[in-house]
Write a protein that binds this DNA or RNA. Structure first.
Lengths: 144, 144
DNA sequence: GCAAGATCATTGCAGTTGCAACGATTATGC
DNA sequence: GCATAATCGTTGCAACTGCAATGATCTTGC
């Protein structure tokens, strides 16, 4: 028998994730002109409060350099403030500006609505997906 | 309440898919030095037989240009043969060479083993995931 | 039969990514 | 206390991506 790519789980997972991300990315691109890394940094800051680049890099599955450049762009747009950490001067303190917070309020609502639609689309198996994603997330820290 | 990125489905899906893809990509990178697009083209050709770039582009969720360049590299490596279609000379006929077939035999076994491991990791919810991915795949053809 | 439009693969190009330096700062071993 | 190693954020660089031409070929309307 020949190999069937369209029955291969990693491939199907990747395609599905890309499609969902693409659909949602179109929303915040239209709303605020954000790229995916910018959205992730902003969204993480909304919940985490003041935090370093290293922190975001570790939690949000983006390379240090990507976080660094996204943060710079967000700073340029007035959505994020960068300051120095006095206790450890290697670190940078990132936090949302009032404009950043206001934007995340709007984007958060859009995200919730999108997720609700998605869950409706997924139907009764959504709970199983939730469990699966938690299990996968726990597996690989990528720290190797 | 602030927005919680790590409870947001599109984000979690994207991270999980990236991690799974990364793990598997390391395997075929080690085995044959393939990139993700090259793997996809090769794997699709294994099951589809002779087919055009346009066909792969439509089925495998890769841009035309990405498929074109991946096919050229695979041709250079002697894994794929490119020939002209006599009925429609705009089209290119891609097919695996014997070396390509031999490689896919090995990679197919590696892929099956990887998927088996993954399914074991996922446990009893794997069936639900299968249904979900089919549903998502059916939704968006991206033809808009 | 032929002109206008559609389709196909390729290529150019700007933007992004991932990785490996790099300078600056802090932690560790002795 | 001080040299060595580790960590942090940034930047350079090559590779890749996605999009928009481009040239070649086919299809459609008439």
């Amino acid at each position: 028998m020949t190999f069937r790519l369209d029955a291969f789980l990693p491939y199907r997972l990747s395609v599905a994730a890309a499609q969902v991300s693409r659909r949602f990315a179109a929303l915040y691109e239209a709303e605020a002109g954000l790229t995916i890394p910018e959205w992730r940094v902003l969204a993480h800051l909304d919940h985490s409060g003041a935090v370093s680049i290293r922190d975001i890099h570790a939690r949000v599955n983006l390379d240090k350099s990507v976080v660094s450049r996204a943060a710079s762009r967000l700073q340029g747009a007035g959505l994020v403030r960068k300051s120095g950490n006095d206790a450890d001067r290697r670190l940078i303190v990132l936090e949302l500006t009032p404009q950043g917070q206001a934007l995340m309020l709007r984007l958060g609502r859009i995200a919730e609505a999108f997720q609700a639609d998605l869950l409706a689309e997924l139907g009764p198996d959504a709970a199983a997906l939730d469990r699966l994603l938690s299990r996968l997330a726990g597996k690989e820290t990528g720290a190797a």
